[in-house]
Simulated assay, not measured.
Amino acid sequence: MDLIKQGLDLMKDQKLDEAAQKFNDHIEANPEDPIGYINFGNLLIHIKEYNRAKRFFEKALSLDETLPTAHYGLGNVHFEEEQYAEATQHFQEAMKQGLDEADVYLMLGMSLMNQEKPKLALPYLQRASELNEKDIDIQFQYGLSLAYANLIDEAHEQFQIVLELDEEHSDAHYNMGVTYLYKKQPQEALTHFNRALEIQPEHLLAGNAKQQVEEALNE
């Protein structure tokens, strides 16, 4: 078994120090192979050592600037550091170089959402949702982008999909309630705000919304 495969298996088992050693051994034996640097960079993101991770991805790109996974990794570093414009550039480059997976569409969409560009984010999050229909986070983020783009009916349907995947998703219940308010159906909204609070009693947004709806209904 090669060192990269051993390192990846160790990462899956949360044996991160041992995984790092395997990746390091691969780099020492193959200093011109960018794959070692990419995998070490991914491990460093996992332990939130973003500055070190950035150096590993940049080293990989200095060896081969067309590597999509290196651009994706560097995009993740910038995203974690809230540098969303830079993240966007690297996720776009990863796609340009052939990366066609749900995660890169998700991250590009979320980078654009964080730059308050929901309409630009929409097609990427939609594509992510198509590529991974069972991923709850992807489906939820797509629902949020629809809501922020004022596509309320479509957002409502999307949050329903999330709740079919996870009936205990408190944020989906809250956002479903908000769509019902837009539809001028306060009783249905209240049902979902209450459900969100049953699941997560400290859900501040649901608590505030519940209070406002109840006050309006009592007037």
Rank of each mutant, 00 (worst) to 15 (best):
E86N: 05
K15G: 08
E219H: 14
Y105L: 04
G41F: 05
A216F: 11
E214L: 06
V77Y: 06
Y37M: 10
A189G: 06
F40C: 12
M176V: 04
D171I: 06
L3T: 11
H192D: 04
F40P: 08
F91W: 05
E167V: 13
K15N: 15
E32L: 15
Q160D: 14
G41I: 10
E81V: 10
A60M: 07
Q158P: 01
N114Y: 04
A196K: 07
D103M: 12
K59Y: 11
Y37W: 13
V178C: 00
Y37R: 05
D135N: 06
H26P: 01
Y148K: 13
K210Q: 15
H156T: 14
S111V: 03
E93I: 02
H78F: 11
R127F: 07
F40D: 08
P186I: 07
Y37E: 06
L8S: 03
A206G: 05
S129D: 07
L146V: 00
H46V: 12
V178Y: 03
K5L: 13
M11F: 08
I38R: 00
I38M: 07
A155C: 01
D33R: 06
A209C: 12
N175T: 08
L217A: 09
H173S: 07
L146H: 05
S145P: 11
I161K: 15
A155V: 06
E219W: 14
H173K: 02
E80T: 11
L122S: 08
L205W: 11
L10Y: 04
G75T: 02
I138C: 02
I4H: 06
G109V: 08
L63P: 05
A172R: 06
L163H: 00
E188Q: 15
I136M: 12
L3E: 15
N114A: 08
N208R: 09
E167I: 13
Q141V: 10
E157F: 11
M1C: 13
L74S: 06
A70T: 00
I136Y: 07
I35F: 12
Y105V: 01
P123A: 07
D137I: 13
K22P: 02
P34L: 05
G177Y: 03
L165Q: 10
L165P: 04
D25P: 09
Q211C: 12
V104A: 08
G177P: 08
F193K: 03
V77S: 01
L122I: 06
F57S: 01
T88S: 09
D166Q: 08
N39R: 04
E80V: 08
E188N: 14
I136T: 13
L217S: 05
A85K: 15
S145Q: 10
H78C: 07
L67T: 04
N132P: 04
E49P: 11
Y105F: 12
D25F: 07
A149F: 05
K54L: 12
K5P: 11
F91E: 03
K184H: 10
L144F: 03
I136R: 14
N132K: 12
A85S: 15
K96A: 14
L67E: 09
L204I: 14
L63F: 01
Q200N: 13
G143Q: 09
H71D: 00
L190W: 01
A189W: 04
